[in-house]
Structures are given as C-alpha cells and as structure tokens.
Design a binder for these strands. Sequence first.
DNA 1: CTGTTAGCGCATTCAA
DNA 2: TTGAATGCGCTAACAG
Lengths: 344, 344
Amino acid sequence: MPPTLEEVAKLAGVSRSTVSRVINQQPNVRPEVRERVWEVIRQTGYQPHAAARSLATRRTRVIGLVIPQAVTTLFTDPYFPIFMRGVADACNAHNYHLMLSLFSHRRAQGAPTSQDALYQQILRSRYLDGVVVSSATLDDPVFHHLLEDGVPFVIAGRYPHERANYVDVDNVVGARMAVEHLLRLGHERIATITGPLNMFAAQDRLEGYRQALTARGIPIDEHLIVEGDFTEQGGQAAMKRLLPYRPTAVFAASDMMAIGALKALREDGLRVPEDIALVGFDDVPLASMVDPALTTVRQPIEQLGSMAVELLISLLENPQRETVHRVVLPTELVIRASCGVRVR
Amino acid sequence: MPPTLEEVAKLAGVSRSTVSRVINQQPNVRPEVRERVWEVIRQTGYQPHAAARSLATRRTRVIGLVIPQAVTTLFTDPYFPIFMRGVADACNAHNYHLMLSLFSHRRAQGAPTSQDALYQQILRSRYLDGVVVSSATLDDPVFHHLLEDGVPFVIAGRYPHERANYVDVDNVVGARMAVEHLLRLGHERIATITGPLNMFAAQDRLEGYRQALTARGIPIDEHLIVEGDFTEQGGQAAMKRLLPYRPTAVFAASDMMAIGALKALREDGLRVPEDIALVGFDDVPLASMVDPALTTVRQPIEQLGSMAVELLISLLENPQRETVHRVVLPTELVIRASCGVRVR
DNA sequence: CTGTTAGCGCATTCAA
DNA sequence: TTGAATGCGCTAACAG
C-alpha cells in the first residue's frame, strides 16, 4: 500500500494541510518544515493519488486527443504520428497527461456502444479537463457534444463556429503557392486532386488552387478537379480519372495522394516531371525519398500538435471564456524534382 | 453543473445506494424502481463522475500505453499506428480508456522532469489500472518501476523476466522461414540487416537467420551480418556496408530497412531481384506498393495490440497473480517479386 | 505560519 | 429489497 498524505503528515509531525501545501508548492510554510516534509516524501516515495486530487480540485490534468472516425487514412499517412508526437511532447512539457480516443470505423465487436455514446461517456464523466480534436469532418457530432457539455476544446484545423478555438495551417496560401509555382513554370492545364471535401483542409487547399488560377486569368475547368481521400490509393484512382483530360501538371492535396498519382502516371508510361509535373502537400518524410523527390508544401505538423495543446492549456489555466483564440501557422513551398525545376 | 448521484436519487425518490445499484447493474432492485431510476438518469443525462468512482473503487478503467524513448522509428514506421489501432479498438470494445505515454528522445523544453520521473509520476499516482509496454529496449528502466510498484502490465514483445506477461509474434520462426525461402531459391551468400540488437525482436530475427543457415550446414559469415535500426535510412546505410561482401540475397529485419536497402542497391546499379534477392519483415502496407513488391514476413501487428490489451484486461479482472501469461502469434511468409520467384 | 473542519461524488458495508 | 452511515485521499476555507 502506497503512503497517503495522512501518513506522510504523521511521519513529518505536521498536519495534512502542511504536507499538501508542500507538494503543491504553496507559500506560507516555514523553510525548515518544508524541508523536513520533503525528506519524508522522498523516503516514503509518496505520490498524490490522482483520483482523490481530482475529486477535490475538479481538475484532472488530463487532456483528450479525439480522433473521430479513424479512417484508414490516419494509419497510412505519416501525418498522424507526427502530429501526435507534437501533442505528446507538449503534454509532457506541461505535466499534463494524454488520453487517446480513437474511434475505429468498424464497430468493435464486444461493444454495443456507439461512437456517439463513447463520446458522451468520456466527456461527461469528467475524465478530461479539455480536448484536442483532429481530423474531424465538418459535421462530426463531437463538436455538438463538446459545445453542449461546455468542455474546453481546441481543434486542429479550421472550424468556423463562433465559439471554436482552433489552430490551423494556412492551407489556402500553401496551395496557392504550389499552383503559382506551376504557373510560373509555364503550365496552364493544371489539375488538382483534392482531399475529401467534407474536411476544411481539403476545401481550403482547393480554394488556394482556384485563387491561383483565377488571379492569373485562367478559367477553372471542373474536369481538372477530382476529389480524392488523402490516401495513396485514392490519389492513384483520381489520377486515372484525370488522365483523359491531359493536364500538364497536377497539384495533389497531400503527399500520399501525389505518390499514388505518381504510380498511376508510371503505369500509363508518363514520366514525371518530363511529361507531367507534380506537386504534393505536407512534406512527410517519404516525400523526399520517392523518385522523383516531391515538390511539396511543407506544413509544420508537429508544431500544429504542440500549439493545439498549448492553446488548450492556456485556456484551461486562465479561463477567459469571452475570447476565442485562433492561430494560423504558415506553410512553405519546398521545391524538389517532381515539378520540373532543375535543383542543384 | 452536471447532476450527481444524490440529485438523481432525490428525483427518483430513492436513496443514493439504489441509484448506485442501478447504474452498476447490480441485482436486488425491484424492476419498477430500476425502471424509474433509469428514466431519471436518462432525463438528467447523469453520468458517474470518474474521479469519485475511482476513489471509491480504487480502479480507473484506464490503461496506459507506454512507449519509451519514442525514437524516430516509431514515427516513420507504419508499425506504430497499426499497433495502436489494435490497442485502441480493444480498449473501446471493453470500455476501457487509453492513456498514451510517449516519451520523446529530446527533453521537452519546459519540463525539468526526466523520463524516469514521468514514469514514476504516472505509475504511482494510480491514474492507471495497468500498462501495455511497447518497443522498449531490454534495459529500459520502466520494467523495473512496473515490477517494483506492482502495476499489472503486459509487454508487446518477448521479455524473459519471470514475472513478465507478454504477447509476441514468432520472430524466430518468421525469420527462419524467410531465409529458408532464399535457401530454397539457391542462394548461399545470404546477408541480413538486423534491427537494433538491444531489442528482442531484432535478436530473435537474427536468431532465425542463424538457425536457417546452420540447419543447412552453411557457416555463419559475420561480415554478412550488419546491424540496422529499423529505419529506412538505417537500412540504406547497412546495405552499403554489405555491398563489398557481395551477398546474392539479403534478409532485412523490417520492411522499412528493406526499402532502404532497395535504394542503396539501385544507387549501386544493382537490380532486384535479378542481381540480388531481397526479403523484408512486417508486411506494412508500403511493402506491396514499392517496386519490386517486397517479399516479406507478415506479422499480425494489429492483433498484437488487441491481444496485449485483452490479456491485460483479463489480468485486471481476474487477479490470479500466480500465473504468468504468454502468447506468441504466428507469422506468415508473403511471397512477392523482390525475392526472385515468379509470381503468377 | 499551521491545524481543524468540511466537503468533492461515489461504492459499500451493515441494519432494517 | 432498501436506506443510513462510513470512508476512499485530497484540497480549501477558516480559525487560531
């Protein structure tokens, strides 16, 4: 049996309150007493009981990372682990713990509980001080529940609700930079493979594509816009549908889709970048390792995760419910071989 | 303010105990009373307070997934997300929650706390009912702490401690099958790129390699054994070191290393499988997508995660501390193009 | 500066 | 079958 506050107090010859003050770094404890208490804490290996503390303080120091409908994407795309590392690092740095809520597409066999019920349970049982939501679709019910239950939350990705705090990357500008680069290289028939359009990230990248072309006075050809799903297979399939329309360049809204497109082009005997230029988005590690190396838009994925957590924590620790916080991180064009520019 | 047991009891016109019995599915409540209480629970949206419940029951229904020294590997290798999906699914299925403890290699800036201190804190604060440990090295201090604190735990991967429960895949047999396959194809100068040898999985795969050769009466040539680190870059570097010794076939202990090796071979102008045969391990999604498609050893990664959780839960729910549980899942040779067999 | 007191919300004896 | 009483381990007023 691990020691309790009570026991530590007895051993140190003080009251529980004093020990409590010591472990909570509160003032108003005589230095020598403080030292004596620390000594006992060290010797006994005392550690406060999390549940007891939570019950008293009404805070858990646990934040949840909610990833709704864990589509296959998440597990093929390197985005996810990198993002999570950012999240985990920030939690560690601030002494918070991380609860992971992944909801698989398929209903778990043993559980009669729906994803919706699981949300409710986790959110309302007050396991969590706050929540980071990632990769949700626009209409995900989690937002409804979060708002209704008044759970503080931060979204990784834009979300246009008046009470939604979020951290996002500048998808519009990133995509525009990519397409502008292709335009500069002389391309005019530029196609795009979008992400699933029920996600804002996908919508925003498409918007960037549109803006770049429009600014150049090039009319949008809807045949050159095909919806993908952020996966490699999706990119490959989308590219096949694009081929009949003979684009000279393609902007894929994710690196994995670009890699899929690369495959489709190869199968069709087309060379990249000689016959067709290709640009991706994300700059995942794989992007620089494929042949030809992918020109792409780098987004600070890990930082996105850290920032989301840090924003959430700042919300938790100074509750200024009035203001809504939004952060947009910049993206950066990384030029490699696949767009046809000769790199040194 | 969410409702408490007390309030529900009042509304239903019964005592707290009765409501408690109802939510905990206990017998000895008159059906009509039970129904009345449920009705109030539904209407109020009552949900038990996790911390209060934990304090009383001394159980949290939270299990931890501890991944020590989150080396880069974890975030490039698709192994990790797939494993985690298995873990998360099993948790959802059994109504447990998942706490993720990732410890980054680099010390988080804000935190003066060492990884060791973080372990202590998480384990001893009784946030967790039990722990699944993955990807630990042999000498990781977490094992010491777990045993000392008496926290129930299951390791994903073999661990030869008398009190250690684990779930593993049959790395030895898997590796042996891979090498035997190469032997059958007529190869005799078979090299291997191992994983980091401070992990049992790496050791075991090397052992399988040795067994296959020895059984065939082929002496082990230490020049043909090079240590990698499970990453693509590591595989590439290892392959380069191997080239002077002119193997005719290579068994890489992970697919990512095999892909790295592929790259090194290409750079050297060698064709796979014509000039040199290549076999990997894992069967990650990427394995079937590279060119040539990788012959590899499939391990049931997702199942490994689920089984680890299920074993842990069974340990938690029927505490038979005497017995130690060990599960070894089978592996399977998947023959594709990179080994030089013509596939239909 | 320190101790006493009173909950936090629930499960669980024990009586009735 | 039900209710009243007790305590899980801690924090936070409030006195002193």
